[in-house]
C-alpha cells in the first residue's frame, strides 16, 4: 500500500498543474455561495445556520464532481498513459485508490474553501457550531461517494464526455430518490417502497449530518457506496 502515496502526490498536484483546477475552484465557490444567497434565501431566512448552503450541495456536486471525476481514468486511457501506469509495479487497486484519494482531497479543498460562509454566519449571529461541523464532515463524505461513482464511469470509457454524462445520470438519480418533489410523484407506490427507495439517496443520508447527527447508517451508506464504486473501477480496469 506504500505505492498509494506517490500516485496520490502526482495526481493531486497534477490538478494544480493545469488552469482547470483554478477555474473549477473559483466557479465552484461562486456557484456554492451564489445558490446559497439567491436560491437558498440565506438572508431572508434570518437564521444563523448553513442549512441553505448544505441543502444545495447534492445538486452542485452532481455537476461539479462529475466534471472533476470524468478525467480520472478516461484521460489516462485516451492519452495512453495508463499503459505506463499499469506496467509500473503498482496494484490496480493502489492506482485506483491513489487517484481517487487525490481527487477527493482536491474536492475537499474546494469544500473547505467555503469557510467564509461559516464566518459570515458567525459574524451575523450565534450559530450552533455542532451541525456546521458535522455538515462539513457529511459533505466531504458525500463528495467522496459522488467521486467514487465518477471513478467507475470514467474507467468505462476513454471519452470524458461519455463519462461525464453517465456519472451525472447515476448521481442525479441517487439525489432524486431522496428529494421530496420526486418522492411525492411516487405516491401511488406503497409508502414502505418509497421509503426503501429513498434510502438509496444521498440527500436522505446527508440530512442527518446537517442536523448535527453522525449516524452509523449514514456513515455506512457513504462509505459502502464509495467502496463498491471503487471496487467496480478495479474490476473494470483489470479486464
Amino acid at each position: 500500500m506504500t505505492q498509494i502515496l506517490p500516485l496520490f502526490k502526482r495526481e493531486f498536484f497534477g490538478y494544480f498543474r493545469s488552469p482547470v483546477a483554478y477555474v473549477f475552484l473559483i466557479v465552484f465557490l461562486v456557484v456554492s455561495s451564489g445558490l446559497t444567497f439567491y436560491l437558498g434565501r440565506f438572508f431572508d431566512a434570518r437564521v444563523a445556520s448553513l442549512d441553505a448552503f448544505f441543502s444545495m450541495q447534492p445538486w452542485i456536486y452532481t455537476f461539479f464532481i462529475s466534471a472533476v471525476g470524468m478525467r480520472l481514468w478516461a484521460e489516462e486511457k485516451r492519452s495512453g498513459t495508463w499503459e505506463l501506469l499499469l506496467t509500473l509495479p503498482v496494484r490496480i487497486s493502489e492506482a485506483v485508490m491513489g487517484k481517487f484519494l487525490a481527487g477527493w482531497a482536491f474536492i475537499a479543498t474546494g469544500i473547505l474553501l467555503t469557510f467564509p460562509l461559516m464566518m459570515t454566519v458567525g459574524y451575523l449571529g450565534d450559530p450552533d457550531w455542532g451541525p456546521i461541523f458535522t455538515g462539513y464532515v457529511g459533505s466531504i463524505l458525500m463528495a467522496g461517494s459522488f467521486l467514487a461513482v465518477c471513478s467507475f464511469t470514467s474507467a468505462l470509457t476513454k471519452n470524458q464526455v461519455i463519462s461525464f454524462v453517465i456519472s451525472i445520470v447515476i448521481n442525479l438519480g441517487l439525489v432524486f430518490l431522496g428529494w421530496s418533489v420526486f418522492t411525492n410523484l411516487l405516491a401511488f407506490l406503497p409508502l414502505a417502497w418509497v421509503d426503501a427507495l429513498s434510502n438509496f439517496s444521498y440527500t436522505t443520508h446527508f440530512n442527518g449530518f446537517t442536523r448535527g447527527l453522525i449516524a452509523f447508517k449514514d456513515l455506512v451508506f457513504f462509505l459502502s457506496l464509495s467502496f463498491v464504486s471503487l471496487l467496480l473501477t478495479v474490476l473494470v480496469l483489470e479486464r
Binding site: 502526482r10 497534477g14 495512453g80
Partner: peptide, 13 residues
C-alpha cells in the same frame, strides 16, 4: 523496464 510505443507520458509534468 518498459517503454511503450509513442511514449505516452504525463505531459503536464
Amino acid at each position: 523496464g518498459y517503454m511503450p510505443e509513442n511514449g505516452p507520458i504525463y505531459g503536464e509534468m
